[in-house]
Amino acid sequence: MSVIVTATTILLLLIGVAFFLAGSMGLLRFPDVHARLHALTKADNLGLGFITLALLPQAADVWIASKLVMIWLLTMLAAATVSQLIARSALHEEDVKQEPGP
């Protein structure tokens, strides 16, 4: 039983790390702000999600497990909000660059 639990944890952790790795590659390699945000948010949310899932079977009780889920949800909320704001300010900057008149 415990072998299966540990194996599940390790497998999910590896998947999570793979998403983080892909996200970081995208962040470093993609050409503009929007593409980089795309790479970061997708990979970040899924990466953290899989790591949270991996840690859930290791949690001592439901209280700690729910704290882990709470951290994941809050991080997703913050990441979604911040990426929207960054994308919008990038759009605004592009507009300003294109028409420097008014």
Partner: peptide, 13 residues
């Protein structure tokens, strides 16, 4: 907007 919603949702937590 998004920031306004975030600013209402997060402070209680």
């Amino acid at each position: 907007g998004i920031l306004a919603t975030f600013g209402r949702f997060l402070p209680p937590i």
